[in-house]
Deep mutational scan, measured.
Amino acid sequence: SGEEFIAMYTYESSEQGDLTFQQGDVILVTKKDGDWWTGTVGDKAGVFPSNYVRLKD
């Protein structure tokens, strides 16, 4: 389980282990570690910068 966040911006990365997503995607955040959080979008999982998302209303 985790908290749902909304992507405010598209995040694209070629780094292994990074979670890429489109603006407006719902991200289920499973771990918060400083500026880099872990989460899932659909069947993808990985880390992403926390300043790209906001808490879902």
Rank of each mutant, 00 (worst) to 15 (best):
S1C: 09
S1R: 06
S1T: 14
S1P: 06
G2Q: 12
G2H: 15
G2N: 15
E3N: 11
E3S: 08
E3Y: 06
E3A: 06
E3I: 13
E3M: 10
E3G: 05
E4N: 05
E4Y: 08
E4H: 05
E4Q: 12
E4K: 05
E4I: 11
E4T: 04
E4G: 01
F5R: 04
F5T: 04
F5N: 04
F5P: 01
F5M: 08
F5W: 11
I6W: 02
I6T: 13
I6R: 06
I6E: 10
I6A: 07
I6G: 04
I6C: 07
A7F: 00
A7H: 01
A7N: 03
A7I: 02
A7E: 00
M8K: 07
M8H: 05
M8V: 13
M8E: 13
M8Y: 02
M8C: 08
M8A: 13
T10M: 07
T10S: 09
T10R: 06
T10K: 10
T10P: 12
T10D: 11
T10V: 04
Y11W: 09
Y11A: 04
Y11S: 02
Y11Q: 04
Y11C: 06
Y11G: 03
E12H: 15
E12A: 09
E12R: 09
E12V: 08
E12Y: 08
S13L: 00
S13W: 01
S13R: 05
S13F: 03
S13K: 05
S13C: 04
S13M: 01
S13Q: 05
S14H: 13
S14I: 00
S14V: 13
S14E: 12
S14D: 13
S14L: 12
S14C: 12
S14A: 10
E15H: 12
E15Y: 11
E15T: 13
E15S: 14
E15A: 14
E15W: 08
E15L: 11
E15V: 13
Q16S: 13
Q16C: 10
Q16P: 14
Q16L: 14
Q16W: 07
Q16F: 06
G17L: 06
G17W: 03
G17P: 05
G17R: 06
G17D: 07
G17K: 12
G17A: 09
D18C: 14
D18Q: 08
D18E: 13
D18M: 14
L19G: 01
L19T: 01
L19I: 08
L19N: 03
L19R: 01
L19Y: 00
L19V: 05
L19C: 04
L19W: 00
T20F: 03
T20L: 05
T20W: 06
T20M: 08
T20R: 09
T20V: 09
F21L: 03
F21G: 03
F21I: 05
F21P: 04
F21R: 02
Q22R: 13
Q22L: 08
Q22K: 11
Q22E: 07
Q22G: 08
Q22H: 12
Q22D: 11
Q22P: 01
Q22S: 13
Q22V: 11
Q22F: 10
Q23P: 07
Q23R: 13
Q23H: 12
Q23M: 09
Q23A: 14
Q23F: 04
Q23K: 14
Q23C: 12
Q23S: 09
Q23V: 12
G24C: 01
G24A: 04
G24E: 04
G24T: 02
G24L: 01
G24N: 06
G24Q: 08
D25W: 01
D25K: 00
D25A: 07
D25I: 00
V26R: 12
V26Q: 10
V26C: 07
V26A: 11
V26H: 11
V26W: 01
I27Q: 03
I27V: 13
I27N: 07
I27K: 02
I27F: 00
I27Y: 00
I27A: 02
I27W: 02
I27E: 01
L28H: 15
L28E: 14
L28R: 14
V29D: 03
V29L: 00
V29F: 00
V29E: 03
V29P: 04
V29T: 03
V29A: 04
T30N: 12
T30H: 15
T30G: 04
T30M: 08
T30W: 12
T30L: 07
K31F: 05
K31G: 12
K31P: 11
K31L: 06
K31V: 08
K32W: 03
K32F: 04
K32I: 03
K32A: 02
K32S: 06
K32C: 11
K32L: 03
K32N: 09
K32H: 14
D33N: 09
D33L: 08
D33V: 13
D33E: 10
D33F: 06
D33I: 07
D33K: 06
G34M: 02
G34L: 05
G34T: 08
G34N: 12
G34Q: 15
G34R: 09
D35Y: 08
D35C: 06
D35E: 13
D35A: 12
D35Q: 05
D35F: 09
W36H: 06
W36E: 10
W36R: 13
W36G: 01
W36N: 08
W37S: 04
W37D: 03
W37N: 02
W37T: 01
W37H: 05
W37G: 00
W37P: 03
W37F: 12
T38P: 03
T38A: 11
T38H: 05
T38I: 02
G39W: 00
G39A: 02
G39L: 02
T40P: 02
T40F: 05
T40E: 15
V41I: 14
V41M: 13
V41H: 15
V41Q: 11
V41T: 09
V41L: 11
G42V: 03
G42M: 05
G42A: 07
D43M: 11
D43T: 14
D43V: 11
D43C: 10
D43Y: 06
D43S: 14
D43H: 14
K44A: 05
K44R: 14
K44G: 10
A45M: 13
A45V: 14
A45Q: 10
A45R: 13
A45F: 03
A45N: 15
A45C: 13
G46L: 02
G46T: 00
G46S: 00
G46Y: 00
G46V: 01
G46K: 00
G46A: 01
V47N: 08
V47S: 14
V47H: 12
V47Y: 05
V47R: 13
V47T: 06
V47G: 09
V47D: 11
V47K: 15
F48A: 00
F48K: 03
F48S: 04
P49L: 02
P49N: 06
P49S: 03
P49D: 01
S50M: 09
S50A: 15
S50L: 01
S50N: 15
S50H: 03
N51S: 13
N51E: 10
N51P: 02
N51L: 07
N51C: 09
Y52I: 12
Y52W: 02
Y52K: 04
Y52M: 09
Y52R: 09
Y52A: 06
Y52G: 00
V53L: 06
V53R: 01
V53F: 00
V53C: 07
V53N: 01
V53I: 04
R54W: 10
R54T: 10
R54I: 04
R54Q: 13
R54M: 10
R54N: 09
L55F: 06
L55D: 07
L55E: 10
L55G: 15
L55Q: 14
L55M: 09
L55C: 03
K56L: 08
K56Y: 04
K56A: 07
K56N: 10
K56D: 10
D57Y: 10
D57R: 04
D57Q: 15
D57G: 14
D57V: 03
D57T: 15
